[in-house]
Design a protein around this nucleic acid. Structure first.
Lengths: 238, 238
DNA sequence: TAGTGGTCTAGACCACTAT
DNA sequence: TAGTGGTCTAGACCACTAG
């Protein structure tokens, strides 16, 4: 752990602890530098993390204002996965692996995702149950070249967890798209849909590793009434 | 303009120009520092901007890899407003101001947005037409305490543009929520909905100023078939 | 005017990648 | 081993806020 990460974690916990109250100012950068026995630039790196994650707002000549962090709950934003979400929200749910098989990318599919025809991938389909109803249908495609084995027990939990801890793969960034589409026959069969459900929310993601290789394509299909996406956004000044 | 912003802009344009090609490495930080006649830390600040905006991917011991920026088009993410979006996408559209009036926050409404009861706000309702059809219905509420006057001509364009250039208000960050809801009677009357449109996508935003004051609450209602949200996300390491 | 955050420097050492 | 990015320092000057 780097020094500025440690300081970030410490300040963050103090904000969550209410040691630093909403609306008040953090100690100045110089004071923090003295307190943590580091240079001011190191403090500033920690503060950038607080800023980016919505814990503080900085104002030149004034200081760092603590934000109301309670309001910014439920961060599906970023690359948070279903399992992480579930843990943080105490949602009682269950994952059913519907199918797991090796396939090769067809011509039509190749156009949709940007993988060459015939690339071998794991095709994983999972149903996410909440209170006995299948609310989400997850369709994942992972390159077998990067993930040779995919135990079915792992698929029942978080794939990200498995890949990051056991396979030492560094997931770095993703492109995500949210649209609403008409339900397919597959949705009808595999999800708990009501009569009024003519559409589902579809979240498509392409996930890349640190070395910029694409290794996962995901299609997550959500029942309309259970879908919610929350984002904390800072205005780009560039 | 700061030096690192200038360097960011320059490197960004070179990437878009194809001076630096997708998949190749940028010159090393030391070389860039020599070339731009600045210290390495200044170069690093410029590279952080490229990183955050999805132009490069860095790898320790290797270098900064140029990403395929074409793929990351259509950024509704962040705080981009409708007008900015329209400009960058060449969409032919039209904005109709349906109503603009001063109102006071009611008890029920106060619970939904976090403003005290009786706060005076501008209530602005706009219809967004594309190819003759009203696709989006925007409902904005702006604090009159912060924006005393709101000319109707300005409302027909971008409110952000008006506030930032003419009123010198610094918009800083927002919390955004996307859900799907049943159409209301109001939607039926003010939007071009088809028989199958039983739901609309609702994007709710709370927008804050640099001094952390909330000053705008927005509800943007989109026809299902025309809604698309794209996001570039980096995995949080904290 | 004193104190704050914003920018920038010149140098150091470390961890990682490639050869 | 040479070169890369990652971290950290101690200091400087500037722009902004508030009393």
């Amino acid at each position: 752990m780097n020094r500025y990460m440690e300081i970030y974690a410490d300040l963050k916990s103090r904000i969550l602890n209410k040691t630093y109250l909403t609306g008040t100012l953090l100690p100045s950068e110089n004071k923090l530098a003295t307190h943590y026995q580091v240079s001011r630039e190191t403090i500033r790196k920690a503060l950038v993390l607080l800023l980016e994650n919505g814990y503080i707002q900085k104002k030149q000549g004034k200081g760092s204002i603590v934000l109301d962090v309670q309001r910014f709950d439920f961060p599906i934003s970023g690359l948070t996965s279903y399992k992480e979400l579930q843990d943080s929200q105490n949602i009682h749910s269950q994952t059913l692996v519907h199918s797991l098989e090796k396939i090769r990318i067809s011509k039509e599919f190749s156009a949709k995702i940007d993988l060459p025809i015939n690339t071998e991938v794991w095709a994983l389909m999972r149903q996410r149950k909440i209170d006995g109803e299948v609310i989400i249908l997850d369709k994942d495609y992972l390159l077998t070249a990067i993930v040779p084995t995919l135990p079915i027990e792992e698929a029942e939990n978080s794939i990200y967890l498995f890949l990051e801890t056991k396979k030492q793969l560094a997931i770095s960034y993703a492109q995500k798209e949210i649209v609403v589409e008409k339900v397919t026959e597959e949705d009808q069969q595999l999800m708990t849909l009501r009569e009024e459900d003519t559409h589902v929310v579809v979240v498509r993601s392409r996930v890349y590793l640190e070395d910029t290789r694409l290794f996962q394509y995901t299609e997550s299909r959500h029942r309309l009434d259970k879908f919610r996406f929350v984002d904390f956004a800072r205005r780009r000044h560039a």
